[in-house]
């Protein structure tokens, strides 16, 4: 889905985090930004309310979907 924003080009990043070393990373949300650095700043500002031991972001475009709700199986 294209975004109409103030930036010439942006992309969506999924944000993953976990609270303890023994639990797996899970998606906590997403951010939209024109570059990786701003995406990191936005992810930390938006989702830092919990005491995460790890947080990472992944460009949504880098995720390869095998199947999804509503798609052909």
């Amino acid at each position: 889905m294209p975004y109409t924003r103030v930036h010439a080009e942006v992309q969506e990043y999924d944000v993953f985090a976990r609270k303890t070393r023994v639990e797996p990373l899970h998606q906590v949300g997403s951010v939209v930004a024109p570059d990786d650095n701003l995406a990191m700043a936005y992810a930390r500002a938006t989702y830092d309310e919990e005491r995460w031991v790890e947080m990472m972001i992944v460009p949504k475009a880098a995720i390869i979907s095998l199947w999804a709700p509503g798609g052909d199986t």
Binding site: H7, V31, A45
Partner: peptide, 13 residues
Amino acid sequence: APTLEADIAAAAM
């Protein structure tokens, strides 16, 4: 700020 994300970042900073 110009975007919602920047709004949140401004508050957080």
